[in-house]
Design a protein around this nucleic acid. Structure first.
Length: 859
RNA sequence: GCGAGAGUGGCGGAACUGGCAUACGCACUGGACUUAGGAUCCAGCGGGCAACCAUGGGGGUUCAACUCCCCCCUCUCGCACCA
């Protein structure tokens, strides 16, 4: 959804012209005998027809089964790119196909329209973000319409519209009430030149992506959503999302990162304090020989106070704390640390253990402190080697070869416990349970579960986003804005300099406010929300986009949800898809919706590649869709995007391939044009009669093709579905026309064939299909027709081709009638003249017969 | 390092639960039509004179392997000191 591509300056003129083009009702005309496929006339004609007749409008209709088909909405960066074309072409095939299968299909589109690029455009070009954004939307909407996608534009959702972001604020207030939105100090990437927070992906080599200023870590008050409360639910539901790609689920599971372990208190040797650690390997506790604390650990200051190494330690800690988090946590960073001068007691061995501070221990995970077991943990091993710390083997392998003297890496596998008191001789698995049990019984600690996922930081020091609805009163402290006072609107007249932090800070009109509680002076929160908040519930808004008394109508949501098919790029595998799941669960708990999960089925399409470079996102758009649509048309662009590769795989863009798609459409068109005058006005055509061989064969192909195309669309194999249509068209071309244009049987079969080709093609190339449907003597629209069904009897192949192998090598082929017994197939294969010649005097030792397929003779 | 996915003609890609490898398209070659063709229609098109050999490489299971099993190589993506 995100992306940034500044619009070219020349397009504004274009934009104006587009806008004047408002649609009066048009008369649909068909060419009399034109044989040339004129996509430039055909495509606008049908786009206007669809618009004039509200062909894509959809309402709740309980007489039909519903189907919610959704593609990830775009960020309005300026123009659509090939990634969008592909994504939306896939969605459109599904939407149109399901419509023709009798479903009531919701297929909406909107704009993920808050975000940084708009603000950067304001800084660079002096255009207001709102102006820039809405101009982009206008242009891109026209581009999407030119592609012929079947969206119900009456449901368009724009997230930067106050009517939309009001509900972001409303959800925030609801979450604040429940403690799911909270504020705390947290470390952020800060650019001192731009005076703003940077997202991790905006930090390049420790520098600001825009001004190249060195990025530092800064502690700031930040708003968070408590996604960690939902960690377990988000994780356990992964097992029930059977319609999601396994790799997306794996990524989400990893991101949530659940681990079960034990928290244990290690008392300090000379104080009443203790250090709490988290470990997943309590079986190694007898091997813990020292402790490591995160530099940020609150106990550190106390520990180093007054010790010999105090100053040195303080310097070290300061240095580490200021390191970039990303760099500090990289695996190849050398482990370093410093001794605090103090000792703790291992509660099981009662041994004295030196307490260290180490750069690789993270305050954010677990308790920010670990027991170090150098023999059975690689990190502790490296650390101990470097600083010459004591080691002790407590897990032994089956051969008994694990020894401090010989080991070059830690032994991290499971094994048999040694040197572990009463627990010696247990295996690791048992010991983990037994020792955890013992620790709980002795009151030394307790079993806990840790998650790697962190709460979702939603504060952004930016203008172009949803204002966080909070005020700070001098007397009453932090107060949420009352529900009646939202939306908190973005002020329009602010300066965009790129300096001095968020532009909102400079807006007195915005910042200065009155406390609704005490009437005193108060100041508004100037942070805005992460734009992922917008995309976390837009799919709900589509069900009732105009409602202004609630975020969505309960009835509409319960009619349409879940999304039956969601389609988008793999790059959102974790963030967007996880946040949307989180929001869904929160809204469920707020009683606003009934579903547990937003997206029943997920299709992640591959990237569009051109000459090895990806064409979406920041790398630049190598091929602009407009340059395809201009010479070839939208139908060609769609067809190629779907034909060149299966949806999940990366697609290599090829100009030659595009030409091929265009040629194919022209080829069908020509055949329809050639025969349409003979077909369209005939009322006496009917196919169910005794047919000559070539027509009977074609008819069989038609029905077989319907079956194959249908089966393939059902499993999203669009590339092969299209190739079957191509084969059928090739077969049509092989039927001689000469002298038959008055032949009733010929015309009847051709009519059936061409009509079915048009219907099968219509989800892929809708404009030309509408056109050809008209040429064949029918009124619009194809979309309102039923998907063709095939006749089992006609599709049935009465002859089967049997491959005859000798010793696994193909030696011959025979045709046999379908349904004859295995014994007869064997007999015919063995009596085949050619086969007999090849066998000669040799005696077949065994003959394998695969029913109606193959015979393998072993000699 | 760990996890997932992929590797098939000159190219994009087909091949269902093991049963004709290379469907369909592109490129290329030839023919037809034509003043002309970069349009269109038709045909050919993995390698090899052949026996045969070819689905990243090497083993295995099987009457039969792109498909199943083991080892290795390459590429893509994700995670990456998470205790």
């Amino acid at each position: 959804m995100k992306g940034s591509s500044p619009p070219s300056s020349s397009r504004y003129q274009f934009l104006e012209i587009r806008h004047i083009d408002s649609p009066p009702h048009r008369v649909i005309k068909y060419p009399a005998m034109s044989v040339k496929y004129e996509h430039k006339e055909i495509e606008p004609k049908w786009q206007h027809y669809w618009e004039d007749h509200s062909t894509f409008k959809v309402t709740e209709d309980r007489a039909k089964p519903k189907y919610y088909c959704l593609e990830m909405f775009p960020y309005p960066s300026g123009r659509i790119h090939m990634g969008h074309v592909r994504n939306y072409a896939i969605g459109d095939v599904i939407a149109r196909y399901k419509t023709m299968r009798g479903y009531n299909v919701l297929h909406p589109m909107g704009w993920d329209s808050f975000g940084l690029p708009a603000e950067n455009a304001a800084i660079d070009k002096g255009v207001h973000p709102a102006v820039w954004t809405y101009e982009n939307i206008a242009y891109m909407r026209e581009q999407l319409k030119k592609m012929g996608f079947s969206y119900d534009w009456d449901r368009e959702v724009t997230t930067c519209d106050p009517a939309y972001y009001k509900w972001n604020q409303w959800f925030f207030l609801k979450m604040y009430e429940r403690g799911l939105a909270y504020k705390r100090r947290s470390s952020v990437n800060w650019c001192g030149s731009c005076e703003t927070v940077l997202a991790n992906e905006q930090v390049i080599d420790e520098r600001c992506w825009r001004c190249n200023f060195t990025v530092e870590q800064k502690e700031l008050d930040q708003w968070f959503f408590k996604i960690t409360d939902y960690a377990e639910g988000l994780l356990s539901w992964c097992d029930r999302l059977s319609g999601w790609p396994e790799r997306v689920l794996t990524m989400q599971r990893n991101w949530i990162g659940k681990s079960q372990g034990v928290e244990v208190d290690f008392p300090l040797a000379d104080s009443d304090n203790s250090i709490r650690i988290f470990t997943t390997r309590p079986d190694t506790i007898f091997g813990a020989t020292f402790m490591s604390l995160a530099p940020e650990h609150p106990l550190v200051e106390d520990l180093i106070k007054g010790t010999e190494t105090g100053t040195e330690a303080r310097n070290f800690i300061e240095r580490i704390r200021h390191q970039d988090r990303i760099i500090r946590t990289a695996v190849d960073v050398e482990k370093e640390g410093i001794f605090t001068g103090r000792y703790a007691i291992n509660p099981l061995t009662k041994d004295k253990m030196p307490v260290w501070v180490a750069n690789f221990v993270l305050m954010e995970y677990g308790t920010g402190a670990i027991m170090a077991v150098p023999t059975h943990d690689q990190r502790d091993f490296e650390f101990a080697k470097k600083y010459n710390l004591p080691m002790k083997v407590v897990i032994q392998n089956a051969e008994g070869t694990v020894s401090v003297d010989t080991m070059t890496t830690a032994y991290i596998e499971e094994g048999r416990l040694v040197n572990s008191g009463q627990f010696s001789d247990l295996n690791s698995k048992e010991a983990i349970d037994k020792i955890a049990e013992y620790i709980e019984k002795e009151g030394l600690g307790k079993r806990t579960v840790n998650y790697r996922i962190r709460d979702w930081g939603v504060s952004r020091q930016r203008y172009w986003g949803t204002p966080i609805p909070v005020i700070y009163c001098e007397r009453c402290d932090t107060l949420p804005v009352p529900e009646n006072d939202i939306p908190v609107l973005l002020p329009r007249d602010v300066a965009f300099t790129g300096k001095g932090g968020s532009p909102l800070l400079q807006s007195k009109e915005f910042v200065e406010t009155k406390c609704h509680n005490c009437g005193g002076i108060a100041r508004r929160e100037t942070d805005t929300m992460d734009t992922f908040v917008d995309s976390s519930w837009y799919f709900l808004r589509y069900t009732s986009p105009k409602t202004d008394s609630s975020p969505f109508e309960k009835g509409s949501v319960s009619y349409w949800m879940n999304v039956d098919q969601y389609i988008g790029g793999i790059e959102h595998a974790v963030l967007h898809l996880l946040y949307a799941r989180f929001f869904t669960k929160v809204l469920r708990d707020l009683g606003l919706i009934q579903v547990d999960e937003p997206f029943r089925n997920l299709l992640t399409q591959g990237m569009v590649i051109k000459d090895g470079a990806k064409m979406s996102k920041s790398k630049g758009n190598v091929v602009d869709p407009d340059y395809i649509i201009e010479p070839y048309g939208a139908d060609t662009a769609r067809l190629f995007a779907l034909f060149a590769a299966p949806p999940e795989r990366d697609l290599d863009w090829s100009d030659r391939g595009v030409e091929g798609a265009y040629r194919f459409l022209s080829r069908i068109y020509r055949k329809v044009a050639e025969l349409s005058t003979n077909i369209k006005d005939r009322t006496d055509l009917e196919v169910d009669r005794e047919l000559p061989a070539d027509l009977r064969y074609l008819r069989k192909s038609v029905h077989q093709t319907i079956r194959k195309v249908t089966d393939d669309i059902d499993v999203f194999h669009f590339n092969t579905a299209i190739s079957f249509i191509m084969e059928l068209v090739n077969a049509i071309y092989l039927i001689p026309v000469e002298g038959r244009t008055g032949d009733r049987l010929f015309l009847s079969v051709m009519k059936e064939a061409l009509e079915n080709v048009v219907l099968l093609l219509s989800p892929f190339a809708p404009h030309i299909s509408e056109e050809m449907w008209g040429m064949l003597g029918h009124g619009p629209s194809v979309l309102k027709l039923q998907w063709p069904s095939y006749n089992e009897e006609i599709a049935h192949e009465e002859e089967r081709l049997i491959v005859i192998q000798i010793n696994g090598k193909v030696r011959g082929k025979i045709k046999i009638p379908a349904g004859i017994p295995e014994e007869e197939i064997r007999r015919r294969a063995l009596s085949d003249e050619r086969i007999n010649g090849l066998i000669g005097d040799k005696v077949p030792s065994k003959v394998f017969v695969v029913q109606e397929k193959l015979v393998n003779i072993v000699v």
